[in-house]
Design a protein around this nucleic acid. Structure first.
Lengths: 198, 198
DNA sequence: TGCCTCACATACGGCTCGTATGTCAATAGG
DNA sequence: CCTATTGACATACGAGCCGTATGTGAGGCA
């Protein structure tokens, strides 16, 4: 168990830096976040940062990986709790929209992340959210519920629609009202994939 | 006609700076683009930049407005050339996807723009593309072709789906093949809005 | 016990943006 | 025609940031 104080302290430093980065990136944005302030806020200096991570971008990578994992887990539970696979797909969409209401997810995963790290579809875990959606659609096609479309295409467009909805809701004056409209529209769009209308 | 050499030269400087910015922002990205190099590339200095624009962000605003106008005009012509309104909507989607294949549009309008300037739906011209889509959907509902959904919600999700498709195609190894898949999936999704299946 | 490793801290250089100041041509007015 | 003023830039400067090269002191192994 005792792995020595060295590695233990290092893991703790990494965790503290990632935690501080989640706050700083979410509130100030990636570009405006100062590494001096960030490291000082957890009692370290930039030396620790560049020892634990490649560079500022590397820290963002670590943050993105962590959040991506959390989002994937949430999507998984939502889907598993749905009574049918089709309802699971719709629930995933709704959950995705609601998650994107979190300012942290918005700023880091939807705005700065893509701008700094490039296309999210090439992120490690291959954007776990997308992978889950694709698998669900594949099952639905095998069951004859959904038209035989290209699964990746359908998954990406559905995710894109949900994402756009999320950004809309987040910026709205009356989020609850807009949220229901967004989810309704998402269900209508998704129904276009069905073999026969519900 | 002769408006004086002063104003004439100023307009020319603005145009040159915006042109250089389109190149620099598209190739290097907003953050990495140096204002020193950018201004020098058209024979000016940063003094001219800060005299003609508010700041670096102001220059990006000008660039975004220009590109947004060009995109809106293209969408308008595409829609007007379609035989029916519904086909016009689908053509708009396809055109949007194809436009987003342009690296300049991708980098500036889809990646850096949102990250630096904030939610695109609040941009001037209110993202002219969206406005056009919304109007088309409203007409289609009045004609009884499309279900009575919330027009803004439907427009935003359709745009989001097209956008996601575009990013996917752009990053693909085999763009032409992926492009057809993306457009197919877009048509399937959009058909979910139809009152009765085609 | 003595040396070595390594997780940091410190110091430095180069670059960036934004502003405050300087300058010279174009215009307006007498 | 000559002068005064405006304004479109150029130049100079300060503050801040990132990344790296170097220093240092505490853990771990022999």
């Amino acid at each position: 168990m005792a792995k020595g104080k060295r590695a233990e302290a290092m893991a703790e430093s990494r965790a503290k830096l990632i935690g501080a980065a989640r706050k700083a990136f979410a509130t100030q944005g990636y570009a405006a976040a100062s590494m001096d302030e960030l490291t000082a806020s957890v009692g370290l200096t930039r030396g620790a940062l560049y020892h634990n991570f490649e560079d500022k971008k590397g820290l963002l990578w670590a943050v993105v990986e962590q959040i991506d994992g959390e989002m994937a887990e949430r999507l998984r539970t939502v889907r598993e709790q749905a009574p049918t696979l089709w309802q699971g797909l719709l629930a995933e969409g709704s959950a995705y929209i609601e998650m994107a209401l979190d300012p942290e997810i918005q700023r880091i995963m939807l705005l700065d992340g893509p701008a700094v790290l490039g296309d999210p579809s090439k992120w490690p875990g291959e954007n776990a959210c997308l992978e889950i959606t694709v698998r669900t659609i594949r099952s639905l096609i095998e069951q004859g519920i959904v038209k035989p479309v290209d699964v990746e295409a359908a998954g990406r467009l559905l995710n894109g629609a949900a994402l756009s909805a999320a950004l809309w809701v987040a910026a709205a004056d009356d989020p609850p009202d807009v949220l229901t409209k967004a989810i309704d529209a998402f269900r209508e769009l998704a129904s276009g994939l069905l073999r026969k209308a519900v």
